[in-house]
Amino acid sequence: MNIAVISCIHGNYEALITVLQDIDAHQVDQIVCLGDLVGYGPYPHGVVELIQSLEIPVVQGCWDEDVTHGLNACECSYPSLLAERRGRLAHEWTVQQLHPESLDYLAGLPKIYRQKNLGFVHGSPYSQHEYLLPDLDGLLALERAIAADVEVLFCGHTHVPYDRTLSGGTLTVRVNGVPQTIPAPAKRIINVGSVGEPRHGRPHATYVIYDTDSGVATLREVPYDYRRTCAAIIEQGLPTIFAWRLAQGLEFAERAEDASHLCSRGVG
């Protein structure tokens, strides 16, 4: 069975349409979406409507939560003042664009979706705002995967895809001074990148096709007409810097880089 896992669309309708066409061409049995349907991009409502029409499992992203519950004040969201001010501007614009039914849909999304031994979250099992960066401390990464109670944990949020296997770990604890060693089960974290806001230095959309039989995860990098999205950003009156950054593959605002930073806020 092939599962296409997509994430972080951010109102980029052009990218989403192209990725769905690519999925159609690859014998995919199921699609799972890891959230952040909106934010920064010019077509938040269109993207929500399209995703809704697919009737696929979708988990809530940090932007989906913020536009329905108000801006989150945790530091994970905005690593700089510049990013925060741009983010707030995009937040206010997006909230104005979304129809009430779209807001209801986003507000009702679950934080985690499990399917057999697979888990799907936006950021981490603890928070949609927490970044599981590829160089996160191994023990912490393993703990996140164990917390999700799955063998393979799919996430997005960082916008940089990776496939990380955590194997051969042991945990030593002392109980009344007596050490006990507990073998940690092998876990795997797969970040599927971003459909609508890549940050790998190219404007192409990324997603992952996962073969549940073989365990092979195939990263798909899909070129799309990002210039149309850039033009729409400007037409909609969003800051032109968003268009420039999208064309550079730099994300709209700014990326998180501190792998040691963990969100202090749990999933509500």
């Binding site: 690593p79 003042l81 510049l82 990013a83 810097i241 420039w244 950054r245 550079q248 700014e254």
Partner: peptide, 17 residues
């Protein structure tokens, strides 16, 4: 200037934003 913001701005500036 907030340092990270300045770094981002300068990167954008020098890359032609």
């Amino acid at each position: 200037f907030e340092p990270r913001s300045l770094e981002t701005f300068w990167q954008e500036l020098t890359l032609g934003a």
